[in-house]
Amino acid sequence: MSDYAHPDVLVSTDWAAEHLDDTDHVRFVEANEDVLLYKTGHLPNAVNVDWVQDLQDDTVRDFIDAEQFADLCSRMGIEEDTKVVFYGDKNNWWACYAFWVFKLYGHADCAVMDGGRKKWEQEGRAMTTDTPDFAETDYPVPESADPSIRAFRKEVEEHMQRDGPMVDVRSPEEFKGEITHVPGLPEESSMRPGHIPGARNVPWARAANDEDGTFRPRAELAEIYEGEEGLDAGDDTIAYCRIGERSSHTWFVLTYLLGFDQVKNYDGSWTEWGNLVGAPIETGEAGS
């Protein structure tokens, strides 16, 4: 993993195994799609962050605020200089989402365990159902969320108008605006199918090796995003999906593995854009 642009944001399962007990400096955070998975077994000394219960506001469609973030970190015994290592199910999809939220609030030392749960389990490494209990810390409340990695609707509109590069990481069927998977079911999340005009389509999971959940080597990632799709590491780029979680995985890949200068995750994503009255929509294949 050393040839990635920022290899320091990845740790191997070997590294993790050696640091499980280094709880004064390292906190392993499991983040899964499945709410019960942590309870069935997890890395020793790992805590659980649930994207619904812990990272999202109960009422407003938004993330937890700065105070709630500080409270979450304090409860997990995280301090400002703790190295927080995220891992989880589904090729680290939700781990990247949690990583993104931690970066949004400026936590300095964040990493992802390459391969996530899948690789750890494949290697037959230690798992436990014991929930660790760390002394509560007093994590300082961040001043504000970092706007440089999050795009809001207005910004996406302006980005589209000046033909800024965008990557839509949903499935080709969602991207093209074909009616989704089951005939006879109303589209529950968006009034209109399709994609934001000008967006390229790279399904998020292409960035991962399906066998063990690790990220693809840099050369292969470069071939996909820069070679096939013509994205440029020097351009401001926006990634989106349906609610902004799959795209946080792609945000991670572009930012840290390929070294793009400026990538934003549009977490409003298709569930916002596809419901806006009058918003421009393109269907079919990506334009050339």
Binding site: E33, V35, W51, V52, Q53, Q56, V182, L185, E188
Partner: peptide
């Protein structure tokens, strides 16, 4: 409320 809307949709689909 416990699972959130996205997860609930998947489970609701099993029931449906």
């Amino acid at each position: 409320g416990l699972l959130g809307m996205q997860r609930t949709q998947g489970l609701a689909a099993i029931y449906r």
